[in-house]
């Protein structure tokens, strides 16, 4: 048994066990945290995982290179377990992995320094402080909404552009955005059951997922605004962001061209915002651009 549970294996085992136990306990006692993944889960827990692993490895007096490799293996184990138990999709794990790499390795080196000094009071204080931050963060309200706006000029009159804004034929063009290329669903088609206020609109994605929408502003040749009434729950990004509302604004430039503005409002369920909002903005922007470029092509080729 001792041969199986070597310090190396214990480092991997107990750091991951700790992480999943802490997340499980949080979900159990703070039900409101069920659908939200907070800052501490991506920063504090990985950092503590690094510290815990080096506690088991402290007697091996690891050199930096080896400690780094061991920590990298720990990152892969954590990612694998997240896929298995948290049912996260591969793109989601790809997005989260830089945070895990950063903070698990940082925790490991911090742990190495801590255990070299053998100052138990200091070490316990550091761990207690990190746990305190975790508890405070878990008990805090997390709510973040943002808007992304993009615009482009189309060489066609507004009346022509408007026809393709409300609904459009299937997009056949190849994806340019790298996340779409590696499998993230991209928008391919939009359908509508009527050209009026209150009509039901559908935005269909490449994997067949459909966003149900309801038109809430219908000013012909000017403004199409729709609320998203239902969206798929997907292991990928879909579970961590809600698209709340979409909008197309059309401006007649007076020279037979139209400025098309695409706006989207979304709510994030993953924190820290300083990290995930970069991804959310990038993905939303590329959804806009794919649709708007298609509308431009349809309008200009008429």
């Amino acid at each position: 048994m001792k041969q199986i549970f070597t310090p190396l294996i214990k480092g991997y085992l107990f750091s991951n066990l700790f992480a999943f136990a802490l997340m499980g306990i949080t979900k159990l006692f703070i039900p409101s945290s069920d659908s939200v993944l907070i800052f501490s889960e991506f920063v504090i827990i990985p950092f503590l995982m690094g510290i815990i692993s080096t506690w088991f490895w402290r007697k091996r007096e690891l050199r930096s290179r080896r400690l780094m490799w061991y920590s990298c293996i720990n990152v892969f184990i954590a990612i694998g377990l997240s896929a298995l138990f948290l049912k996260e999709g591969s793109i989601c794990l790809l997005i989260v992995s830089p945070l895990l790499w950063t903070f698990i390795t940082a925790g490991a080196f911090a742990g190495q320094k801590m255990f070299e000094r053998s100052n138990n009071t200091l070490n316990i204080s550091v761990v207690a402080l990190l746990l305190l931050i975790f508890v405070a963060d878990s008990l805090s309200q997390h709510n973040y909404e943002n808007e992304v706006s993009d615009q482009m000029v189309i060489n066609a009159p507004v009346s022509e552009v408007w026809q393709h804004v409300v609904a459009f034929k299937r997009i056949k063009k190849e994806n340019k955005y790298w996340l779409f290329k590696i499998g993230m669903p991209s928008p391919v088609e939009s359908t509508v059951d009527g050209y009026h206020l209150g009509a039901k609109r559908k935005c269909i994605f490449s994997n067949g997922y459909t966003f149900d929408e309801k038109i809430v502003t219908y000013n012909v040749n000017q403004n199409l605004t729709f609320d998203v009434t239902h969206q798929p729950r997907d292991p990928e990004i879909m579970g961590h962001i809600d698209i709340l509302r979409g909008q197309f604004l059309l401006k007649d430039n007076g020279d037979n061209t139209t400025t098309l503005i695409g706006n989207s409002w979304y709510r994030l369920y993953v924190f820290p915002v300083w990290y995930y909002d970069i991804w959310a903005q990038s993905i939303t922007r590329n959804v806009h651009l794919r649709v708007m470029e298609h509308i431009k092509e349809l309008s200009e080729n008429k």
Binding site: R63, S64, R65, M68, W69, C72, W101, T102, F103, T105, A106, F109
Partner: peptide
């Protein structure tokens, strides 16, 4: 800055792992 230095360490591991030994 500590996080940034850790990124440097990851980059060094992937590009010039010997450097980590020399620093040690």
């Amino acid at each position: 800055a500590l996080v940034f230095d850790n990124w440097l360490k990851i980059h060094t591991l992937l590009t010039r792992p010997d450097l980590l030994d020399w620093l040690d």
